[in-house]
C-alpha cells in the first residue's frame, strides 16, 4: 500500500477535507448541468401542459418504478460500504461495493429493455407513427431521451468508478480507511440517485393522476 498522504498536503485530515470539498463543489456544478435540462423541461411543461400529460402517460411506468426502487437500494448499499469503510470492515466494504455495482448494472439493463420498448412503440421524436399528435409532445419525448440518456452516462461513469474502487480496495492498492475516496465515491453515487428521484416524477408520473 502506498502512503495515504500526498503532496501538497502536510497532514491527512486536510487532504480528506480537500477531497470532500472538491467533490461537493463538483456536485454543485453537476446540479447546474441537470438544472439546465430541468429549466427547459419546466418552461415547456408550462407551455404545453396537456401535451406533456398525454406524452407522459406513454412512458413505461412499471419499468421506471422498478428502476427507482433498484437505484434507491443501491444508494443504501453504497452508504453501507462507506460506513463500513469508516469502521474498518474490509469485507463489508467489498460486499457493499459489489452490491452497488450489481444494482447499478441491473438498472442499466432494465433501462435498456425500456429503451427497446420505447423504440418499438415509436416513442422517439420524428417517428413515423408517433403515438401522441399534439404540439409539444415530441419535445417531451425529446427531453425524456436527453434526460435519461445523460443520467445513464453519469451512472456508467459511477459504475466504472465503483468497479475500480472495488478492485483497489480488494488488492489493498490504496489506504481506503484514511483517505476520503470511499466517501467521495458515495457522494457522487448519491447524486446520481438524487437526480433520478427528480426525473422519476417528471417523466413517469406526469399525466398518471387521472
Amino acid at each position: 500500500m502506498t502512503e495515504a498522504r500526498h503532496d501538497p498536503f502536510h497532514d491527512i485530515a486536510r487532504q480528506r477535507h480537500a477531497a470532500e470539498l472538491g467533490l461537493w463543489v463538483f456536485l454543485a456544478s453537476e446540479l447546474v448541468f441537470f438544472g439546465g435540462l430541468f429549466v427547459t423541461y419546466g418552461l415547456y411543461r408550462y407551455a404545453y401542459p396537456s401535451a406533456f400529460e398525454a406524452a407522459g402517460a406513454e412512458t413505461a411506468i412499471w419499468l421506471g418504478t422498478i428502476n427507482t426502487a433498484i437505484l434507491l437500494t443501491s444508494s443504501a448499499t453504497m452508504a453501507a460500504a462507506v460506513w463500513a469503510g469508516e469502521a474498518g470492515h474490509k469485507r463489508h466494504v467489498l460486499i457493499g461495493l459489489a452490491l452497488t455495482a450489481l444494482l447499478g448494472l441491473t438498472f442499466m439493463g432494465v433501462k435498456g429493455v425500456e429503451y427497446y420498448k420505447d423504440i418499438s412503440e415509436s416513442l422517439y421524436p420524428g417517428a413515423a407513427d408517433f403515438p401522441v399528435d399534439m404540439p409539444g409532445a415530441q419535445v417531451f419525448v425529446g427531453l425524456y431521451w436527453a434526460m435519461t440518456g445523460v443520467h445513464a452516462v453519469h451512472l456508467s461513469i459511477g459504475l466504472v468508478a465503483v468497479a475500480i474502487t472495488l478492485w483497489r480496495v480488494r488488492a489493498e492498492r490504496f489506504d481506503w480507511q484514511n483517505t476520503a475516496l470511499l466517501h467521495v465515491l458515495g457522494l457522487y453515487w448519491h447524486l446520481i440517485d438524487l437526480i433520478w428521484i427528480v426525473l422519476y416524477p417528471l417523466l413517469y408520473l406526469m399525466g398518471r393522476s387521472l
Binding site: F33, G35, P125, V150
Partner: peptide, 23 residues
C-alpha cells in the same frame, strides 16, 4: 456554476443534430 449551463446548452444542440431530438 455557469460552465455546466453552457455544457447542457451545447449538449441539447448536439443531440438535436445527431438524434433529431428536436428540442
Amino acid at each position: 456554476l455557469a460552465t455546466p449551463a453552457l455544457a447542457v446548452a451545447l449538449l441539447m444542440i448536439v443531440v438535436d443534430r445527431l438524434f433529431g431530438l428536436s428540442l
